[in-house]
Design a protein around this nucleic acid. Structure first.
Lengths: 214, 214
DNA sequence: GTCTATACTTCGATAGAC
DNA sequence: GTCTATCGAAGTATAGAC
């Protein structure tokens, strides 16, 4: 019945997520994280030791959750194409629940993994690994053509992350009337699902395009 | 015959490109840019006024160059699918010539365009606009199925930028033997070209998959 | 566990001589 | 145009009372 001794670490993590997503590691301010979490700044150092340790903890949790969802889908009984659609939808859902996810991921890629230690790297790599398992199943049953797993993963995850993280910039573009930047999530998800299914479709079902095109 | 009064601004821009790509706007240090450019820090302020003005100048130049290349390809006489392949190859080439391009673009998306002013935003928007023109030509001739131009653009540009920027992180993954992170550029470019062609292939040539899948 | 107060450092920017 | 020297702001981190 005892209420948890403290909810402070959770609140700090949530506030850190927002701050790191919006400003990156270097741009994030521990003062702002403390204010947003409604805790004293000293508490952050008490619970996490340093700004970097806090950052790594956040990344590990995020990657772990993404990998868990993909593994659950890969292990389910549905057909490979259905699992692929589900994987795309699940990653989009997760990224929208945890709205900091896309920006944090883009930044970490851009920074060349500068803030990653071994444990965080392992958590990160579990995501493409789970996706590769899902692909392998489709290839075994002949439903998917064989592709480079990492190339396929990048083709799927990059547009999702990019699209979601680019929401503010697309908003700016719409306000400035420079291009038509309207693109609803549902439209985009269906587009990615369609693209990935076409990418993985075996050659045999497209005999009309077998040779000499471009 | 007079040699340019100064090459300092060019050297500063080149050094800034490296610094901003590696560390982001907040992480970039004006001192480091000055050292790398072999100029005094005061010269940066003399020529550009502020760290942010320098950053914007760099982004404008980069986006302008990308848009120019796409426009040249869209205006050329080749078939739409050939132009698509060429556009992908051209963007990859440009990004590899200017190796800071991918990381800077990822960061700017992640930051929600926080450092963009009107002129920079206009330069940025010219890139998807040129790509949309290329797509529209294919749709008019019936070579491409109609797609949401921005969705198609994201599906193309995100994997390219993501793949190139992720080179250091993939290197880390390879060293740690967690997953097979080897993926040569040529393999990846062909993968993206294939994926985009399949994405844009008209429905009519794939009658075997018309309905009730997933 | 939580706070106040502050030490220490780094960085963007500028003044002013040449 | 170029340099040295430095100011002032901002930020990470910690000491120490409660």
């Amino acid at each position: 019945m005892a209420r948890p001794a403290t909810v402070t670490p959770e609140r700090i993590l949530a506030a850190a997520a927002t701050e790191f997503a919006a400003r990156g590691f270097a741009g994030a301010r521990v003062d702002r994280i403390a204010r947003r979490a409604r805790v004293n700044k000293a508490m952050i150092y008490y619970h996490f030791g340093s700004k970097q340790a806090l950052y790594r903890e956040l990344l590990r949790l995020t990657f772990r959750q993404a990998a868990d969802r993909l593994r659950a889908i890969a292990a389910s009984a549905v057909s490979a194409p259905a699992a692929l659609d589900a994987a795309i939808a699940a990653l989009v859902d997760l990224a929208r629940e945890r709205s900091y996810f896309p920006a944090v991921m883009l930044r970490e890629v851009a920074e060349g993994g500068a803030h990653l230690d071994g444990a965080t790297l392992a958590a990160l790599s579990a995501v493409p690994a789970a996706f590769a398992e899902l692909l392998a199943r489709g290839v075994r049953t002949g439903t998917f053509r064989p592709v480079h797993p990492l190339a396929a993963y990048v083709t799927m995850i990059a547009p999702i992350v990019f699209y979601l993280a680019s929401s503010p910039i697309r908003q700016q573009l719409r306000r400035s009337h420079l291009i038509d930047a309207a693109l609803p999530v549902e439209t985009f998800v269906r587009h990615v699902q369609h693209t990935m299914r076409q990418m993985l479709a075996p050659e045999s079902i497209r005999p009309a395009r077998s040779l000499h095109d471009a």
